[in-house]
Design a protein around this nucleic acid. Sequence first.
DNA 1: AGGAAAATGGAATATCCGTTCCATCGTTCA
DNA 2: TGAACGATGGAACGGATATTCCATTTTCCT
Lengths: 278, 278
Amino acid sequence: MPKGETPTDPRDPPQTVEAFRNRLMALNGQLPRRLQQCADHVATHMDHIALSTVAQVAQGAGVPPSAVMRFCQEMGFSGYAEMQRLFREALSRAAPDYATRLANLKAGGAGQPATLVAEFVEAGRQSMEALARDLDESALNQAVETLSQARTIHLAGFRRSFPVASYLAYVFDKLGVPAVLHDGVAGLGHRSTLQQGDALLAITFAPYSEETLSLAAHARKTGVPVVALTDPAASQVSGLADTLLTVTEIDFGAFRSLSAVIALALSLAVAVAARRET
Amino acid sequence: MPKGETPTDPRDPPQTVEAFRNRLMALNGQLPRRLQQCADHVATHMDHIALSTVAQVAQGAGVPPSAVMRFCQEMGFSGYAEMQRLFREALSRAAPDYATRLANLKAGGAGQPATLVAEFVEAGRQSMEALARDLDESALNQAVETLSQARTIHLAGFRRSFPVASYLAYVFDKLGVPAVLHDGVAGLGHRSTLQQGDALLAITFAPYSEETLSLAAHARKTGVPVVALTDPAASQVSGLADTLLTVTEIDFGAFRSLSAVIALALSLAVAVAARRET
DNA sequence: AGGAAAATGGAATATCCGTTCCATCGTTCA
DNA sequence: TGAACGATGGAACGGATATTCCATTTTCCT
């Protein structure tokens, strides 16, 4: 760097985690070996930075501390401390007083309704996190593929799954996607409407409702592809489905907040609608 | 403390945030002035501890650092470092790599189904936080009171609110609470079943469905108390309800994940069932 | 193959922070 | 009122951690 030009050093540091991520991707592939190791490790454990020391990050990446130091400067920071500040601020903004508030609600006393809210909120949040963590992207893509090619989508979900199925019916209707909700209103199913070229979306969780299982079995026999939205341990269902989408819903007491299931179901619906329009 | 008894010092430190909070409450009121200042500040800014230094906490509480030090020991820790460890561990368990994973999903590309999941999860999480933050406890208690005294609970919710209403019907049934779901199956309501001594739980969000509003109006005229579960800006509803429970549901695109509404509705149902049994 | 430039690892250094200690002040009880 | 005990604040200490520097190795280009 002979002239006043120092192309790597005096950049302004990323101000947001988003910007950090972008620069990380931009640098990817054009870094020396050790620096690349740092980049890789940081990319996959970005949330560790806020609470780790240089030595810990270095050990995690399998490099000496000085390499981490160079990496920070390569990213535009003056050093590790400045980089860490970014993540600490992001972390404290993420959980402002929400955790405190939750705890206060819980502390109100076991009998208080507000305590129940706190518990259900907590269960819902955990379910969401589990969904984001464990989502099987290829299964999801396959489900979208299958459903978007169907002439009509059949929705099956009873008992605790019925709210999800009925919401999907509403959403599909809004989106202009032909869908039938198998609600069993008159005591019999819409079984005869299952035809070649359709697809079945079966939503069921343990204990699996008999109606849903038999409908899925019937669909398979008819040659209608079955997408199942269920919990991970669904051994009874796996044999009946072409595509298996699993969600772990944390429950509180005997009841589930359904938040993760609905989030996944909604995504599926919107993706299918988008896919059909192209 | 003449004998071997030292009742305040060599206690085992709290192992969980919960235990910490308990000891804090137990100590409240029986601490010297400066220590009490520390306790107050810590109680209201518990989430700051994980990322702050002694000096920062001390400044926040308006005391010298040594006072904070004594406070930590009074709480049973060897010092500030040990106390901070508790909160750091809680924090890192709270956000494992969930944030990273979400970002990765989002980064997949705008058209990807997985991106949608990330968006809906994010919307759901925000809704949950908003619920915990803004919950009106007294309104909730009043709603529980009203519904638990009802002979029969009538559930009204159409269109996007129908899944919530139908889930409540399921839950109430499980809990042995008499509840009627107004589903309008045969093209007419169950209006005539609304009787003195019953209560109506009306679930509706903008744009408010005509059926729900007119049912609520009818209930009022009949002398049946109305509990409304709706969004904060519900001016049309406020005149029709005796108790107003509001939820802010963040939406993504045109659709809502319903997670906060369901969490609140579930809490209401369980609290009502518990109340009736006593 | 040889030399220059870049990269690397580890040791030395400087900074920050937690912790302790002690002198002073206030309070309480005899 | 005075003595004793607890509380308080600040300064000094010690440990840990970020940061820098330099000798050595590796890589790349001629």
